[in-house]
């Protein structure tokens, strides 16, 4: 659907500072999904360029940002689909999933190591309303191996079902279960260490 090319002098020009600000957010988002800095750069660049081409149709930066994110999500989905058709992707990605070793949080009998034991958390719900808590959670998320972060976000934020994630990434459901378990163990441990432990003091 094409609009007639009309000059729209009434619309506000796009503020470069806004673009710079949004760019950082988009990059982090793309990096999590794609697990690759270069691909994330390219996707964000293309999404921004596409959005700014029609940017003057948007009233206000909020609408524009929503639009850029929508374009970026499409780009990421395309890239993930292309990857799946590339034969070596699957073996690359499965490597992490089938490592038979127990995560370091457990001893050789599969019991919690003392330092890793999940403690009771005081008022965990309160954290959800705190920007500081979310910033720590964000940092924990960024410390995950790329694939774990990607699968965790696909599952918990995009709310894809296991078999959809399998299709997208060329992994088995067994792989996905292992990856999600590891991601959750690591996130929980990171939060306990950096948020809930601090609180006790």
């Amino acid at each position: 659907m094409r609009r007639p090319p009309q000059p729209r002098p009434s619309s506000t020009p796009i503020d470069p500072a806004f673009v710079a600000r949004v760019r950082g957010d988009l990059l982090r988002f793309a990096r999590l999904q794609l697990g690759s800095d270069d691909e994330a750069e390219d996707a964000v660049q293309e999404a921004l360029a596409a959005a700014l081409r029609n940017g003057d149709q948007f009233r206000g930066e909020a609408a524009l940002k929503t639009w850029v994110i929508a374009i970026l999500k499409n780009k990421i989905a395309d890239l993930l689909r292309q990857r799946r058709r590339r034969p070596l992707g699957a073996s690359e990605m499965a490597a992490e999933a089938d490592g038979g070793a127990l995560p370091a949080l457990f001893d050789e009998r599969g019991m919690w190591r003392e330092a890793a034991r999940p403690a009771a958390w005081e008022d965990p719900e309160a954290g959800l309303h705190s920007d500081q808590f979310l910033a720590i959670f964000d940092a924990c998320l960024n410390r995950l191996p790329a694939q774990q972060g990607q699968v965790f976000m696909m599952r918990e934020v995009v709310e894809l079902a296991t078999d959809e994630i399998c299709d997208e990434l060329g992994l088995t459901s067994g792989n996905i279960h292992v990856i999600l378990h590891r991601a959750r163990l690591a996130l929980r441990a990171c939060l306990q260490h950096h948020w809930f432990a601090e609180e006790v003091r």
Partner: peptide, 30 residues
């Protein structure tokens, strides 16, 4: 095992936090 019981109780919070974070990023910087 109260450690595993704690783990179970804390699991949903991780998904919840991820959703909040994504929502925050959607309207951050506006």
């Amino acid at each position: 095992c109260r450690h595993c019981a704690n783990f179970e109780r804390q699991l949903p919070l991780l998904g919840e936090a991820a959703k909040r974070l994504a929502a925050q990023e959607d309207d951050h910087g506006v």
